[in-house]
Design a protein around this nucleic acid. Sequence first.
DNA 1: GATTTCGTAATATTTGAAGTTACATGAGAC
DNA 2: GTCTCATGTAACTTCAAATATTACGAAATC
Lengths: 154, 154
Amino acid sequence: MRRDSRLSGVLHVLLHMAEHNGPVTSEVLAKAMGTNAVVVRRIMAGLREAGYVRSEKGHGGGWVIHRDLEKITLRDVYDALGHPSLLAMGNRTESPGCLVEQAVNAALDSAFADAEALLLSRLGEVTLAQLSADFHARLSARSHSSSMEISDVH
Amino acid sequence: MRRDSRLSGVLHVLLHMAEHNGPVTSEVLAKAMGTNAVVVRRIMAGLREAGYVRSEKGHGGGWVIHRDLEKITLRDVYDALGHPSLLAMGNRTESPGCLVEQAVNAALDSAFADAEALLLSRLGEVTLAQLSADFHARLSARSHSSSMEISDVH
DNA sequence: GATTTCGTAATATTTGAAGTTACATGAGAC
DNA sequence: GTCTCATGTAACTTCAAATATTACGAAATC
C-alpha cells in the first residue's frame, strides 16, 4: 500500500500560505510541494468546504487561509480530508462466521481502535499556530547558526 | 492502498493449528482462510525462521506450532512477519530541506511514533493462549445458546 | 474579449499486497 | 527405487488506492 501523504502535503501547503500575504495560486503551492496543481486543488477542496480556506478565481486569485491559525488543529485538517484510514493493517474478513477469526478480530480491533484514538487525540492537540511557531523557531535557529548549514530555505 | 491483512491472516491460521492435533497442510489452512496455499506458506515463512512453527514435508506433513502458546505474543507474530508498516499515513518527503516541511514532519512524526508505540505495546500484551481462550469462550457461548444462532463454526 | 485561475472529470502511473502458476526439493508410502 | 504428497520459492498476474497528468469548463480580472 502506498502511504497516504495528503495530510503531510496539505499542512505543508497551509504553512506556506500562512507565510504569504494575499492569495497563493495552486501552481505556486504545487511547486513548493513538488507536485501538480491539480493535486493541490484536490486536497484543498475539503478544507474549502470546511471553511478553513477560501479560493478565488481570476487574476490575483488563489488560496487564502480563512480562519485563525490557533483555531485549526491537525485533527481538523485530517477530518477535512475526509478522515482517510490511519492504519495500514486491517482484518482479513470484517464479519467472519468463523469463531477463530472472530476472536482474532476482536483482539486486533481493540488494539487498532486504541492506536487510532491516540493518534487522533494527538492531532487534536496541535494547532497550525504551533506548527507555524515551530517553523519560525527553526528559521531563527538556522539564520543565527554558523555557516555549517547547507540546505536551503524555500 | 490495499490494507495489509497478513497479521490477521496468520493469527487465524495459528489458532486453527492450535485446535488441530498433528500437522496441518498449507492447503487446509488456505481453505480456512479462503486463500491460496502459497500465500499461507509465504506468511508462515517468517514464523518458521523465528522458531514459532515448524513445517514438515511429505506424507503426513504440514505445519505445527513449536512453542507454548503462552510464550507467543501478537507482537512476536508481527515481528516475525518482518514488522510491516502499521500506519497508512506518512510524510510526503522524509528529509526535506524546506523548514516548513521539517516543522510539519516533526509534529506528525511525533504523533505517528506514539501511536505506533501504543499499538505495538498492545500487541505485546496479548498472547496466542489468550486468543485461544477467547475462541473457546465464544465456542462455548454459542453451543450453550438457543438455536437463534445461524452462522456456522468451521 | 483575452488571460488567469479555480473546478473537476477522465485517464494513466505507481506501489505493494494478494493471488496464481510452475517447478524443484525432501519425506514418507509402497 | 519410484510414486505421491507436501513444502520452498521464483516469476508473473491481478487488484486497490494514492498520486500524477491531461483536458476542458466556469468565473473573475485586466
